[in-house]
Design a binder for these strands. Structure first.
Lengths: 131, 131
DNA sequence: TTTAATTATCGCAATATTGCAATAATACAA
DNA sequence: TTGTATTATTGCAATATTGCGATAATTAAA
């Protein structure tokens, strides 16, 4: 009786989990705009990537080895963060000898700026309680 | 000879990993402002949380059960996302009977708006190559 | 062609996030 | 007090992210 119940529960768990993708974000529940907005935020969701972007905005260009010195992270780690930013489109790299020179992608940068700006619409400055 | 080498390598790995915090973000390498900016971005880095904020901006107030219907995620999952947004300070909840009524925290919302806006400084619209 | 310099990728371990069922906690009504 | 409705928390599994050593790939110089 109790045994049967346990077996049944186990089967349910197995069925549920074997239908896969457990633990991953359910992107299909949301609009493309919402998923894109979240993806943009994710690209900014690490202090190293914030630091990289701030540095590029201030200095215009920078090569990987300088980022490694500036950030204090291992070369492999920095390379990965740069890859993510490049994948998000917000920076671009051009090969310069044995180095790679990175800079902001101005077009995508402006898109980010515009989308974040329109996301943060003005809200009424109501009091402490909502309802 | 080879054996000694292997043992030494193992020891190095153990020492390195036992100094702990492996896999976690190295926040101490960055400024408070950079960590804060990344944390704000992280709060927005999920489509469900984007959807929640958009809904609140549009409708002003909303209770948990409505979010559950709107989002199509399980109640536990929605509750967790609301908790994260509350922890980030960007929303606030007030108990209304057996429900909890959520709304944007206008003060923090404006802070987010201002900080994202000042993060996306204007960049020169240079060409394809950086250097 | 060999060597040096620089960057990208692989493989692994640790931590973090996502999602949900089950259950606990809370507030109201009967 | 007991039951009902709603929300929060717990515990677990799956996936994602972070970090880095080792190594491969790429480019320029010798």
């Amino acid at each position: 009786m109790t045994e049967r119940f346990v077996v049944l529960k186990l089967l349910i768990v197995i069925l549920r989990c074997s239908s896969l993708n457990m633990g991953a974000t359910k992107t299909d529940l949301f609009t493309k705009e919402q998923n894109d907005m979240a993806a943009m935020a994710k690209a900014l969701a690490h202090p190293a990537r914030i630091a990289i972007l701030e540095y590029l905005v201030a200095k215009n260009v920078c090569i990987t080895s300088t980022f490694v010195e500036e950030l204090g992270l291992a070369q492999a780690t920095v390379s990965q963060h740069l890859k993510e930013l490049k994948l998000a489109g917000i920076i671009q790299g051009s090969i310069e000898g044995t180095s790679v020179c990175y800079c902001i992608n101005p077009k995508i940068w402006k898109q980010y700026k515009a989308l974040f700006n329109s996301f943060f619409k003005d809200v009424a400055p109501n009091g402490q309680d909502c309802c």
